[in-house]
Design a protein around this nucleic acid. Structure first.
Lengths: 224, 224
DNA sequence: ATAAGTATAATTGTATACAATCATACGATT
DNA sequence: AATCGTATGATTGTATACAATTATACTTAT
């Protein structure tokens, strides 16, 4: 009847258990396995140096995440994502990121706010220098801080999932001018949270995701 | 490279594959397995007449759904849901049901609208007669129609998951006066959709979930 | 030549066997 | 008596074996 801490989950990601799961997940999101491609249990197993058992368990989880589609007695197929799916996900994310920003305004700690501020200033620097990799890293971290700061395990789980999910289609979105504009939006969100303006923070976070989507569509990245 | 239809997923739920998964899920949601209870693979397997393999696969899926927490080499424990978790989920659902109603307004078919209207009138009848079981059934169906009518696989998947999820805490919410009030809200949502008033439909659906939550808290059902 | 039917191969579904890890109890040592 | 160490049992992690299903190729009949 022991009450194990949820933090266990986080470490699991990088420990032995779930290694297979995350590797396959990564390979789907990175585009190594194409849409509608059939994944064979033995083939994947050999590639990862394991038997079918852990692969099957990973397949079942990936199906639940919507990344795989398993047809009984036939096979596992990489789920096809249509441009409408992407649009829907961004609209859903827009609402949830807004709620996250609202809750973060209420619950953010001094340390988290400091890191948020530092993040924005650092991103300014790297945007000016054209360091796209660091910019992408900082963008990820900015949202991650908010996910933690909203102080809701439920919302955090959803948003982390979606955030990883959209990496599949978002890869090069921060390149070009969007990087600087995006960080300017980050700054405004940060300022609103700092000023404890919940409504403004929510509205800005809403719009931030919509803008990211619009930019992605403009660059023609939505039809993968 | 065959393109299997998503409808396969639906039938799977009730076919052989996933039987174990749904049974265990049901037993957790129904409260048969208590919070923090440890589930043993062999014990569950014997109870369902299967070996450990399908049970393990189900465990992995249930962990991803947040219903189980698996600690490596130790065991699977039923996830404890705090009252804050419940509150968060209802807030999240409120936003998503609102979005669903908005999209349903844009995409609902004639047949779906008819069924929605019929649903409301039928529920009126059963509410007056005090038929609580039928009322609960109609409530489920009302939301289900909206999930289908919003015409978004992504949003539907989320909302169906949450809807089943909250059954764990919602069981007796429709009893008492809430049944009639709830159906009056259904009627307003339906009318707004019929009038193609997206904003109103969204707002009403938002409030509908908030009201359900407030009622649940008032009745003291949130601390399970 | 085409189509149906059958046999063979490949793949998934499930059960079982073995390995690794963890919990518990007992005993030895201080 | 308390504590550490070891041994034993229980449980999970993984691999493999077998069963069931599906896909493919070949044969045969029209």
């Amino acid at each position: 009847m022991a009450r194990y801490d949820v933090k266990q989950e986080v470490t699991d990601k990088y420990s032995l258990r779930g290694r297979v799961f995350h590797k396959i997940r990564e390979d789907i999101l990175s585009g190594k396995y194409k849409e509608y491609e059939e994944l064979k249990e033995v083939a994947i197993g050999e590639e990862l140096g394991v038997s079918r058992t852990p692969v099957r368990e990973a397949f079942r989880q990936l199906e639940l995440e919507g990344l795989l589609q398993i047809v009984p007695n036939k096979g596992a197929y990489v789920t096809g994502i249509t441009s409408k799916d992407v649009q829907d996900i961004y609209m859903i994310r827009s609402l949830l990121e807004g709620l996250c920003a609202r809750w973060a305004t209420e619950n953010i700690t001094r340390e988290q706010l400091d890191e948020l501020e530092e993040n924005v200033y650092l991103a300014d620097f790297h945007a000016a220098k054209g360091h796209m990799e660091q910019l992408a890293e900082l963008d990820n971290r900015f949202h991650q801080i908010l996910y933690e700061a909203c102080h809701s395990k439920q919302l955090e789980r959803l948003l982390v999932d979606y955030h990883e999910y959209v990496l599949r289609v978002r890869k090069k979105t921060l390149a070009g001018r969007r990087g600087q504009v995006s960080n300017e939006e980050h700054r405004q969100i940060m300022e609103a949270i700092k000023a404890k303006d919940k409504d403004k923070a929510e509205m800005l976070a809403n719009q931030h995701i919509i803008n990211a989507y619009d930019n992605m569509v403009k660059n023609g990245l939505h039809d993968m």
